[in-house]
Amino acid sequence: MSEQPNEGATAPGGVVIAADGLTKRYGKAYAVDNISFGIRRGEVFGLLGPNGAGKTTTILMMLGLTEISSGKVSVLGHDPARQPLAVKARVGYLPDSVGFYDQMTAVENLAYTAKLMGLDLAERTRRIADALLRVRLDDVAHKRVATFSRGMRQRLGLAEIIVKKAEIAILDEPTSGLDPQATLEFLDLIRELKAEGTTVLLSSHLLDQVQRICDRVALFKAGHIAMMGTVAELSVGVLGAGFVVEVEAQGTGIARRLATIPGVTKVETVAPERFRMTAERDVRPDAASAVVAVNGALLKLSVHEPSLEAIYARTFQTDPAGGGVRHAA
């Protein structure tokens, strides 16, 4: 009865997680307020927002680890409130600042959770060895976890998801607290997961990392989803355009000339010889020829690609109360 096949959840590109009006209240405070979204099989989806925006709460509701106040969510066709075991058997979870039993070795820690997953000894041994190799912890497999760095613990947490052969990997703030090198390594591991067809849901407040890896993002703001889509879509929506090209040039009539380039939506003169263009595409070649065309001297030409940082700043700027939890009444 719990294994009802769900066409949408099994077809490639089908929706594997669907939230509808999902809400979580703590007393009168709304931690998550009426959010709806769908995550497709095989994509990397980012939950993005400042601390306290409701990302972790959303994740816990999807795993049946905290009660849902109202609304519903379906994970791989299961209701996590009623069928948590069916959900948790197929979904891997790397909690925010994950912990292990320090006195046990990496292998022993994984063996314990693998037993809880119901894997038999032979299967366990094989999968654990494979997973540790993949996250490059094979050389410390028999060291006590107490000696592990934060980056190693994160990778061990990911190994657990690999051992589970999870169809969906939910990673809560996976890169916070990691040094740049460890972050890059971890992001590579996430890409490998995606390449294997695993759906990845990750939450973060570190924007540039999310930008590099996510197919789509949802911007959380005080328990709401302020915006959702690909990074390019969001930047058009928020910034009015995707690309900002800055031109430094000497000459007359440059600003007027730049404005005639197709795809340019706005030209600002930020300093006597500096112009900032907002455009739907990378218009640097056109800008260069425009300057040459009016006999100007081109001093500098640069482009800012659509950046989540900018989108984020713009989204959360507009409301000074943003970032907190909305209190009802």
Partner: peptide, 14 residues
């Protein structure tokens, strides 16, 4: 305190 609870409860057990 060891932050193992949510990891363990994310396995298919009650």
């Amino acid at each position: 305190n060891r932050r193992t609870l949510s990891r363990i409860l994310a396995q298919p057990i009650y």
